[in-house]
Simulated scan of single mutants.
Amino acid sequence: MNLSIKNISKSYGKISALKGVSMHCSKGEIIGLLGRNGAGKTTLFKILFGLVQADSGQLEFEHSKHKTLGGIIEKPGLYGYLNAHENLKVFSRMQGLKLSEQEIELSLQRVGLPIDRCDQVQHYSMGMKQRLGIAIALLNHPSYLVLDEPFSGLDPIGIKAISSLILDLVAKDKIGVLIASHLVDQLSAISDRIYVINDGEIIKSGETQQLIRDHSQLYTLYAPNIGESQCLKKYGAKLFPSKAILQLDTPKIIEVLQELQEENITITSCVPEVDFEKLFDIKV
């Protein structure tokens, strides 16, 4: 059974935090929940974990001998004065587990953390704390991993490392992953599908690449001799020896690529940039 969220609504007094939110995630799939801060992402995840009671709607997921959900909401809730081994021991006992030292080391290795580091986790970088939080979330082998803003506070190297970790977990363990973020570039890089939430409501959803194509107007084209193109000049493109940057409506890009082919220019890569304002239907 998929993890299904059906028509979830939640209000705090006169403020509607969620308005009939529906989405689903299958095992082996990465689902992105894209929205600005305050859009309702964290509230939805708290409802998933039973930390907040929904006013209406329902959640459906399979119940196995292991736990169904593991995750991080807002930020890893670690014991800063303990080391990584000790944190895993504490959280495993909370879940009724008694991990051996070997199992703890395997848990650390699984998320790319050193097994010989003994200092307090309060000295860890944000990326290492995220990794340890994920190791704790994976205790008891959950079917689904839920991550709330896992890229926040990370530098580009840290973002790439966490993204690679998530992709590796899905490939090896076939778990489903639900990620909430306000960073469209990071979500689009690893998600199979994306739901866009704005003011507590899902306003768009679809397969990631199609959603990007539908909301892109700026394209970077790469080719060894693209700087020699004549057709790109009429589109007002910025030309460089091996790349060109141009802005145009999505359907037009197919015509441009055909014209380049007629010029014997072989495009090696066409990278669209999502128009964030267009994605949220905001007029500026």
Score class of each variant (00 low, 15 high):
Gly35Val: 12
Gly38Tyr: 06
Gly38Ala: 05
Gly40Asn: 05
Thr42Pro: 06
Leu44Pro: 10
Leu44Gly: 07
Ile47Leu: 09
Leu48Ser: 05
Gly50Phe: 02
Gly50Tyr: 02
Gln53Leu: 10
Ala54Met: 15
Ala54Leu: 13
Asp55Cys: 07
Gln58Glu: 15
Leu59Cys: 02
Ser64Asp: 11
Ser64Ala: 12
Leu69Met: 09
Leu69His: 10
Gly70Ala: 07
Gly70Arg: 06
Gly71Leu: 04
Ile73Arg: 14
Lys75Gly: 04
Pro76Phe: 14
Gly77Cys: 06
Gly77Ile: 03
Leu78Phe: 12
Leu78His: 09
Tyr79Asn: 00
Gly80Ala: 08
Asn83Lys: 06
Ala84Gln: 01
His85Lys: 14
Arg93Ala: 12
Arg93Pro: 03
Met94Ala: 14
Leu97Arg: 11
Lys98Cys: 07
Lys98Thr: 12
Lys98Met: 05
Ser100Arg: 12
Ser100Trp: 12
Gln102Arg: 08
Gln102Ser: 10
Ile104Ala: 03
Ile104Phe: 07
Leu108Trp: 08
Arg110Thr: 08
Val111Lys: 02
Pro114Gly: 11
Asp116Met: 05
Asp119Gln: 07
Asp119His: 07
Gln120Met: 14
Tyr124Pro: 11
Ser125Pro: 03
Lys129Ile: 07
Lys129Gly: 05
Gly133Asp: 03
Gly133Glu: 03
Ile134Asn: 01
Ala137Trp: 05
Pro142Arg: 02
Ser143Pro: 01
Leu145Arg: 00
